[in-house]
Design a protein around this nucleic acid. Structure first.
Lengths: 142, 142
DNA sequence: GGTCGATAGTTTATGTTTAAAGCAAATCGG
DNA sequence: CCGATTTGCTTTAAACATAAACTATCGACC
């Protein structure tokens, strides 16, 4: 039963990500990881270091490097050296990046609203609580 | 709230997969996708076509090609042309593949048992049910 | 039989992801 | 002040993943 629950959770994540990837790809010619980076930066207007980004997104450091580079090439984010620490870069969204993110977030939200439309609110509350509990167990001993 | 639930679900999947990947990598020098392929084949002793595999695992056709090739190179699975249809290959685990899978599945099960140890059974039941319901919504209109 | 569309797989181009190795700057212990 | 370690980030190699283009076969219809 634990196995079934785990597999079902993975399946939900996979199906949903597939859908979202397609939306971002078809409608906006971008990808989910790029959206994730932009979302993290949108929540941190003062910017984030590469390490902070990689921690926030649960991806490796090298991975962030390449995604940031692409977004930077598109002019969606900027990177400046931290005056306190010459090793560290502070990455933040540009004006264009914020505008682009708002558009993407809108589509994201719309997909979520539509998908969860028929999911009763009180069940959603229970689900959120159970997932929170599960994540605590999963993160145990990290 | 729907957004938070969705994000939390993704987070659970990501953290868990990270753990599992590490276990498979460190202890058995293999990967999660290979395990997934082997699991699907273990459940189908008579074998599966490439298309059936890719449908079962929710991954693209070309992706299955490369993973199968690697497992084949390790002698863990075999591929024969379907006598009914020369286009189609029937892939199945070898004896060595089944033995290897049993070992991997054991480690997998152990990780799940340990992770979910403190998750009360009746909550687990509710979680499984909610995830099942959610997956139905996610798969809607595929 | 011969053509035409559909199906099964592979290949290719692009992108994501990790671990590990490497580099440069910061920090710490003497 | 100065070597040793740590920390922040990039690079590299290998694996995974997709979509799109391609090859080969099958089936159906004439």
């Amino acid at each position: 039963m634990e196995l079934r629950t785990w597999i079902r959770l993975l399946s939900c994540a996979k199906v949903g990500e597939k859908r979202l990837r397609r939306i971002f790809e078809e409608q906006f010619d971008t990808t989910l990881p790029r959206f994730d980076v932009m979302a993290a930066l949108y929540r941190a207007p003062e910017g984030l270091s590469m390490s902070a980004l990689s921690r926030a997104l649960l991806v490796s450091n090298g991975n962030v490097t390449s995604i940031v580079r692409q977004l930077q090439a598109q002019g969606l984010l900027q990177s400046v050296t931290d005056p306190r620490d010459a090793r560290s870069a502070i990455v933040s969204l540009t004006k264009a990046g914020r505008a682009q993110f708002v558009t993407l977030a809108e589509a994201h939200h719309q997909w979520i609203a539509e998908t969860f439309r028929d999911f009763p609110l009180e069940r959603m509350e229970v689900l959120l609580e159970l997932l929170t509990e599960l994540r605590a167990l999963l993160s145990r001993g990290t």
